[in-house]
Design a protein around this nucleic acid. Structure first.
Length: 461
RNA sequence: GGCCUCGUGGCGGAGUGGUGACGCAGAGGACUGCAAAUCCUUGCACCCGAGUUCGAUUCUCGGCGAGGCCUCCA
């Protein structure tokens, strides 16, 4: 094993060597999508970033020794609103199911196109309602939650170190500055664990009546159920630090009586458009689907590999300005790389070392690019390149080409060389142009020994 | 008001107390019948001010600027 893995931890605001609780089972939880609408490219960032981490952990600890959970949030008031808007005629449950199923399927297609491996577990909130209720009961029993005004609320004052993650002492916040102070809350910072549902809202039976969970409780329930009371890594976007992760952390710790919920908390920076955060509420978002399948962005479609590489060209904690220029650069890099299949070779040390340094994908991509260039002249490096590229999930796969077609192309290339010998440039160029139009790029070179022209070809990328 | 990031050439981005990576784009050249590909060469930068220092882009302080969280949000 080479350099130790170092990760930046939001909890300590420091980089430190990663030490798993159990190297036989390294556990990571990442906040996944709320399935009410197409995911935008900003949502793609954590999927890609933590996919790289997942690949790295699998490399370091072995594929069988990493558990990656990414949830699907399928109960949320935005979903209800969308269901009512899109399917006004249907019963609510039916309408909600349509919205969540469709969005979830789309999300899976999108992230697959971005080269993301499937997590080991993708729990749904609605499959974990009893687990949520159980935690809430535990919190009430331990004096960390109370019932008021038809809601169960978490009592932030019951905890001496609420604010552990965001470093945000409760009393220094401007209470009521942004959120109206609820009269039934003991403290303005208290948040909902369970709320009652009206008959036209989805609900589940609970000790406090038919209702639905608050936003944060699902992650506590699911991470606890699938990864344990304390696990290794919890990830998500920067905006989740407060309140979402802070509150998850508070709930889980109080319910389980632990010092931390996860040892390492990692947060990715935003994707920006013209210097501003891309978000649904700002309305300045580009969906993954649109980028992949429509010509809405810069008048063309963009392959998933290009989007992925463009994302990895910036360190995950830095903001990314999403631009055509960076996509074009990513595409250009990819087109220069050899295609290969991942084999058993070990990845390049430089790439591995870069990734081990708090997921420095920028340095890793550069090392990979250098390796790609070396591999152009030294084919023995190809397996190492393939393994390294695969670690980042950006390995260009060879285009499947039919044997018969290949033979036919070879014949045309040969014919062109004959025409060139006869100095019939017009006909020779015609063959080149036709092949080009068919997506075949010819590459003329010179045999170093004989000085004869040799021509190779590849499928344009 | 509180709490966080960040400010390097056209772009993406390293890094260091002592002339300043690298990639992409640009420019020039080689090769070519012409292209493409490839190879070689190359211009361009460290937000401002003060301080520490023989010397700061790199350290300290102060500005200025940008962005984020404190409400749903990746």
């Amino acid at each position: 094993m080479s350099a130790a893995l170092k990760l930046y931890n939001t909890l300590t605001r420091k980089e430190a060597e990663f030490r798993p609780i159990d190297p036989q089972n390294v556990r990571m939880y990442v906040c996944g999508p709320t399935v009410y609408d197409y995911a935008h490219i900003g949502n793609a960032r954590p999927a890609i970033v933590f996919d790289v981490l997942y690949r790295l952990l699998r490399h370091v600890y072995g594929e069988a020794h990493v558990t990656y959970a990414r949830n699907i949030t399928d109960v949320d008031d935005k979903i209800n609103a969308r269901a009512l808007r899109d399917h006004p005629g249907l019963p609510l449950n039916e309408a909600i199911r349509l919205v969540t199923e469709k969005t979830e399927t789309q999300y899976h297609e999108d992230v697959r196109a971005l080269g993301c491996l499937e997590p080991n577990i993708e729990p749904r909130a609605t499959d974990n309602i009893p687990q949520m209720i159980e935690i809430i009961e535990k919190l009430i029993a331990r004096g960390h939650a109370y019932v008021a005004g038809g809601e169960v609320l978490f009592d932030t004052k019951s905890m001496t170190d609420y604010g552990q993650l965001s470093k945000r002492p409760l009393d220094e916040q401007q209470a009521g500055a942004r959120v109206a102070v609820d009269v039934h809350k003991k403290t303005p910072g208290d948040f909902v664990l369970w709320k009652l549902s009206s008959h036209n809202e989805p609900g589940w039976e609970s000790p406090w009546g038919r209702g639905r969970p608050g936003w944060h409780i699902e992650c506590s329930a699911m991470s606890g159920r699938y990864l344990g009371e304390v696990f290794d890594i919890h990830g998500g976007g920067l905006d989740l630090i407060f309140p979402h992760h802070e509150n998850e952390n508070a709930q889980s710790r109080c319910a389980h009586g632990t010092d931390v919920m996860a040892n390492v908390w990692m947060h990715n920076g935003f994707v920006q458009v013209e210097g501003r955060k891309m978000s649904k509420s700002e309305g300045n978002f580009v969906t993954i689907y649109d980028l992949l399948h429509t010509e809405k962005f810069a008048g063309r479609q963009w392959p998933g590999e290009v989007l992925r590489l463009a994302m990895l060209m910036t360190h995950y904690r830095e903001p990314i300005d999403f631009s055509v220029k960076r996509l074009e650069e990513a595409e250009r890099l990819l087109s220069k790389w050899p295609t290969a299949e991942a084999g058993d070779a070990a990845p390049c040390d430089t790439v591995l070392a870069a990734l081990s340094d708090d997921l420095n994908t920028v340095a890793a991509v550069q090392a990979l690019h250098a390796l790609a260039q070396e591999a152009q002249s030294d084919r023995t490096l190809l397996p190492v390149f393939a393994a390294s590229a695969d670690l980042l999930g950006v390995l260009p796969k060879p285009t499947e080409i039919d044997e018969a077609v290949a033979v036919e192309i070879d014949a045309r290339v040969k014919a062109r060389l004959e025409l060139l010998k006869a100095k019939n440039f017009a006909e020779a160029d015609k063959i080149r142009d036709t092949l080009s139009a068919e997506g075949i790029q010819l590459k003329d070179g010179k045999d170093p020994a004989s000085g004869e022209r040799v021509t190779t070809w590849e499928v344009k990328r």
